[in-house]
Write a protein that binds this DNA or RNA. Structure first.
Lengths: 134, 134
DNA sequence: ATTTAAATGCAACAATGATGCAAATGTAAA
DNA sequence: TTTACATTTGCATCATTGTTGCATTTAAAT
């Protein structure tokens, strides 16, 4: 599945910014920050446009935003796009990278009566196997 | 256990800002934002002091910071202080409040070889029982 | 090719958070 | 109780993420 296809499927206009962002993210095996994405992007877009693209893509459940911390926001393809299972995210405190942990599924929470869940985010913070042996 | 005791136990100076923050948080049954805490606080402190207090208290594992979103940061007593179990947090998208879900424990994650976990955060977003029937 | 709703760029702004430095304060020792 | 010193505080300044309004440009349907 390519970026253009994804956009059409979700009834979004095929703009170069959106296609570029999706192209970069879909090629990556990790969740990426705004700057990481911008660096790999061909075009040069205004910051506002960038954010609005992220917002639109997130609202359409194409991208998933992982907020590790105030200054550590990452984007990845939403599991719904690949019909992948919901999974936890691992944040390495050493290399600052966020990895999707497909082998750690996120269970649907059993909430007290009257509560409704829309989304569950699991973020595991620690040290990844690359940074471990150093 | 009172604020002064907690500070001494962790070898932190008893400053009025720290004691005030702890006093407010320990009386509350929900995780509170910086502004919520400031409103309930007697003294009037500089924003920097406030943040440094939060940081110190967090580093000493007295407070726990829950980052719901870029503009939604909350603080609660760290489970370690009360020797409570690690638990999930529920963020109500309607009333904007964060509740500690003691009945939903956070499991120690089983990670691939080479990974080490220091902390796991589970945030469930949805609608709470107060906002449900409206 | 024309039309129109949507997307973009620009400027301005808000909130959280960090840092450097001088002044004030808590605490341990005399 | 007073003194001494390390710690904390307040202030100024700056970085980053994110938002909004408005004029201009663009995608895509006719």
């Amino acid at each position: 599945m390519n970026p253009a296809e994804v956009l059409q499927r979700h009834h979004l206009k095929r703009t170069s910014c959106r296609e570029g962002i999706l192209d970069v993210i879909m090629r990556s095996d990790k969740a990426m920050s705004e700057n990481e994405i911008r660096e790999k992007l061909a075009g040069n877009y205004d910051r506002t446009t960038f954010y609005r693209s992220f917002k639109t893509l997130e609202e359409s459940r194409i991208l998933h935003r992982i907020v590790v911390d105030h200054l550590n926001v990452r984007y990845a393809i939403d599991p719904a796009v690949n019909s992948n299972p919901l999974h936890a995210h691992f944040y390495c405190e050493a290399c600052n990278e966020v990895k999707c942990m497909e082998m750690i599924p996120v269970a649907v929470p059993v909430l007290p009566k009257g509560y409704t869940a829309n989304e569950t985010e699991v973020i595991i913070k620690g040290v990844c196997h690359h940074c471990q042996d150093k």
